[in-house]
Amino acid sequence: MGNPWAGEVTLVLDGTSFDLKLTLGALAELESALEGETVLELIERFEAGRFSTRDVLALIVAGLRGGGWQGRSADLLSVEIEGGVLAATKAAAQLLARAFAGGGD
């Protein structure tokens, strides 16, 4: 299980548990994937409940990459996420909160 005090979030993909984390490098890659938007704008969308599935996927990919995963976002198109879209969305929101609030939920 991921350590929330280290900014980690656990997500199970195809039966395998992954610890996701938004490292500085992962955040830079995330901003690149946002195509001109900033992470601050992404946070504002999450806080307002106006995020998209693209936002969730971008955060999951960034978190996986920060946790050492070497895949690409296309690799996740057919993956089974334990808990479904709701679990993915919760994990994405937790990643943001833990990266910028310093642990916990």
Rank of each mutant, 00 (worst) to 15 (best):
L22R: 07
R72A: 14
E35T: 09
K21H: 12
L11S: 02
G102K: 06
Q70A: 15
E31V: 02
L22Q: 11
G83W: 12
L42Q: 07
E37V: 00
A58F: 05
R98K: 11
D75I: 08
E37S: 14
G49W: 03
V79H: 08
S78A: 15
L27K: 14
L77D: 13
G25M: 10
L86T: 11
L64M: 09
R98A: 09
E8H: 05
L27A: 13
E47P: 00
G2D: 02
I43P: 00
V39R: 05
E35M: 06
K90C: 01
L40W: 08
E31P: 07
L76W: 05
G67R: 00
E41C: 04
E82R: 10
E80K: 14
L77G: 06
L11E: 03
L95K: 02
G36Q: 06
R50H: 11
E35Q: 11
I43D: 12
N3Y: 07
K21D: 04
A74C: 01
S52D: 03
L22Y: 10
V39F: 03
F46Y: 15
E80M: 07
G104Y: 02
G103Y: 00
G36V: 04
L96P: 07
L59N: 02
A93H: 14
R65M: 09
I81A: 15
L34M: 08
F18Q: 14
A87M: 02
L24V: 15
G2Y: 00
L13H: 07
L95D: 01
D55A: 07
T38I: 00
G103V: 01
A6L: 15
E35D: 14
R45S: 09
L27Y: 00
A26S: 15
L34F: 05
V39N: 01
F18R: 11
E41Q: 15
A101R: 12
A58E: 02
S52Y: 09
L77I: 09
V9H: 01
W69P: 07
L96C: 09
G7F: 01
L27D: 06
R54H: 07
F18V: 03
K21P: 05
L40S: 14
F46H: 05
T23V: 10
A93I: 06
I60P: 03
L30R: 09
A33P: 00
E82K: 10
L64T: 01
R98E: 11
Q70V: 09
L13C: 08
G68K: 04
Q70M: 10
T23Y: 10
S17G: 10
G71I: 13
V85F: 13
A97W: 09
L24G: 15
T38S: 15
E41P: 03
F46N: 06
L59T: 01
A62Y: 08
L42W: 03
T38A: 01
V39P: 04
R54M: 05
E82A: 12
V12A: 12
